[in-house]
Design a protein around this nucleic acid. Structure first.
Lengths: 167, 167
DNA sequence: AAACACCGTTCACCGCGGCGAAACAGTCGC
DNA sequence: GCGACTGTTTCGCCGCGGTGAACGGTGTTT
């Protein structure tokens, strides 16, 4: 959803309307105006005159918040996994697995579900899924996407997170 | 909860710590630094030099948010305990315990209740519950969630508090 | 006050099974 | 024939659940 820029306090009526509809909005404070008191996470403000970088940063932050979900990758018909403007080519088996994981991005997908999607006729070996998951992991890691294992439950695809052991 | 002022980028280590614990924080940007990209509603920033009114307004807004936002963790169907955008995987026994505790988040749950949920057939050993509670504690601590003991009453799950000795 | 039972924490250990990873081999297309 | 894709085997780590034991704090009994 687009972030709306509102001059304040001039456009107070417009602000009320945006608050009603829950649109993300950035108030541009003129001169000596007092900052508004709203605690709404989708409302922010900045005092003019302001650095253009700062305005863009606040707009970006509001936009990011308004998207409750982080954007999911896409797998197109040619087996390309696209994410944040970059892409990698996947093999047929990896495509089937990636499509299933992207479909439930951020949630766990069971091993049996993945196996059925990749091999409708029947899984070749128990270990085959592990091996292909390993290969998929390595292929998509340059894009900043990772597949996490949830033991005895399945796998979960998500945006790569910085390792927490760096303290 | 008090809002913490952080010089940035100088006090980056401190910022990471505050993000871990979910403390509301206001970053004071020095000179030409780029604004940080966090979309966290409990984080805000302002570029120095700044009007004192503006700093106070942003601090007040963060404080107001931290009071109204006391979300409970969630345990999804796949044994993942989610809290403030992060998650950890729980084992089956830990899931049963966590679900019971989350269900009464912030209140005491009796040991017998927990034991019945985890082992409907009967508790294996006297201290089995203790051991699994210890493991649950360690697993969820990175998320900023803790389980406190209320002697002869049971256990209580809550958001982790830095210095809980003053009780 | 000392002795004691009770409760809770933490550790070490074991058996089991899920999963990771490497190495190897077979197949297919260019 | 070369490289990409796939399947298989093998090895081994480590998470999980259960158990026993040591330790410490607390309240009760003698």
């Amino acid at each position: 959803m687009d972030v709306v820029l509102v001059r304040w306090p001039e456009e107070d009526a417009r602000l009320r309307q945006l608050r009603e509809t829950g649109s993300p909005r950035l108030l541009l404070l003129n001169g000596e105006s007092e900052p508004p008191e709203s605690a709404d996470c989708l409302e922010d403000w900045i005092r003019l005159p302001a650095d253009d970088r700062d305005v863009r940063a606040r707009v970006a932050r509001l936009a990011s918040r308004s998207e409750t979900q982080q954007p999911a990758p896409q797998v197109d018909g040619d087996g390309l996994l696209r994410y944040r403007g970059r892409w990698v080519a996947l093999s047929p088996v990896e495509s089937a697995l990636a499509i299933t994981l992207v479909d439930r991005f951020g949630a766990v997908v069971g091993r049996d579900t993945l196996a059925r999607r990749a091999w409708p006729e029947g899984t070749p070996t128990r270990n085959a899924l592990d091996v292909h998951m390993l290969r998929l992991r390595r292929r998509i890691s340059p894009l900043g996407v990772e597949v996490r294992t949830v033991r005895s439950r399945g796998y979960l695809m998500q945006a790569a997170q910085p390792r927490a052991d760096a303290q």
